[in-house]
Design a protein around this nucleic acid. Structure first.
Lengths: 226, 226
DNA sequence: ACAATAGTGTCTCTCAGACACTATCAA
DNA sequence: TTGATAGTGTCTGAGAGACACTATTGT
């Protein structure tokens, strides 16, 4: 069949932008490429779709993260799909890109070939990974304005001041405390962890919260921002 | 190379949800399939990516629209990418889906094998086209709440009451006239067509507007809805 | 006691929607 | 003149942010 021959020439890959907060700085995971093209160059985690083992492209992305970066348990969301004859020197290619959010403590120990770079300090990237990174940043910043997306930067339980700081880090501007707490209350996504407080400083301890079970792998959306 | 053999088994296609407003009813273009699988079944316009001729997947979508449905000049926006071993009986496949918005008057004359169906009256669709259609509807309804997306349902020039009716059709609820005009003014995307009025009824004629050149293929976004 | 941050009550200002009014056409 | 729709001025109520206050810890 002629059309079979035609479409078979398209490379199908996934690329993942893994984002985390390091000391309040939005950062991305880069891997040093082990194979051609661009051997030795720092790039986004990515790889071919394996038709034999992957249930869908998101499973491919999860597999790539696990096998190449040792990352598991991240929140995964599909970004856009990039395509064309020029973006990969091997030929006409399709890259289904994903955005992964993960708390810093779930990242693997630093090792050779893996680094975590503040997004403001990322230089030139191979392929069209620069564009993909920009798409991820735009998505995260945009969705943080009206959804609960940023909770995925934090672990199991966290305090409201902590969460507010995450929002402020991503949005790059201070957030009104009263409004923020009102909104979080309205979203109805958090519940206090009974008896769990975050002590530490010479000040009043903060109540710890966790995401309600029914919101675990699902975002809470607000109609009017924040 | 082994990985080459692996990824070559993935079919790469595009599917397009063409939406238009027919008498204020959101409707979708369906084509009767001419080839296996699902010969004769009504489905979304779609086809293989042609690596030799397409500059990217969006170009593939435009080509499919032109060659299979005779549609040109639509606003095109990428939706999500669907993938997996089961969605297409021919094997593991990737479908990059697009949403197309077009004024009714730019649609081709009705012909055998092409129909325009109110989205509320679309029955079962082959592949995962039902999911794709739902994604398109969600996207259009969501974006209509805070952007100028719906202008692509109208032609070159239109009156504000016309545009408001388009918003109301999509959102499924009445829109406040004063707020609507304030927002359109703030978006700064429209300009009055000098001297062009829409007469017709036994009442005051409406000023006609058009999209400013700098906003032609780009959406205007509002921070706070409408 | 005091410094420091957590958490809350309340005021104000902004903005979206409601309402009412004027404008301009055909019959 | 009347009916119908286009277009605008203004009021009001809801909600977001500012501010100030109380609460609770360690030193």
């Amino acid at each position: 069949m002629q059309s079979e021959a035609t479409h078979a020439q398209v490379l199908t890959t996934v690329d993942v932008v893994v984002l985390t907060l390091v000391e309040g700085v939005l950062s991305v995971v880069l891997l040093q490429r082990e194979r051609a093209p661009y051997v030795g160059v720092w790039a986004l985690p990515g790889g071919y779709i394996h038709a034999q083992e992957d249930a869908d492209a998101q499973a491919s992305a999860a597999r790539v993260l696990r096998s190449k970066a040792g990352i598991e348990g991240a929140y995964l969301e599909q970004l856009a799909t990039f395509s064309g004859p020029a973006r990969d020197p091997r030929g006409w290619s399709v890259a289904i890109s994903y955005c992964a959010l993960i708390p810093q403590q779930l990242l693997p120990a630093p090792r050779s070939g893996l680094k975590i770079v503040p997004v403001s300090a990322v230089g030139q990237l191979p392929f069209d990974h620069g564009q993909i990174l920009q798409a991820a940043l735009g998505r995260v910043r945009s969705k943080s304005q009206y959804s609960s997306l940023p909770v995925y930067f934090l672990g199991e339980s966290f305090s409201l001041p902590q969460l507010q700081q995450v929002y402020e880090s991503i949005l790059g501007e201070p957030v009104n405390k009263v409004s923020f707490r009102r909104k979080m209350d309205e979203l109805g996504m958090l519940e206090p962890v009974p008896g769990a407080m975050q002590a530490g400083g010479a000040h009043r301890p903060a109540q710890l919260y966790r995401v309600r079970p029914e919101f675990r792998q699902q975002l809470a959306l607000s109609a009017r921002g924040l």
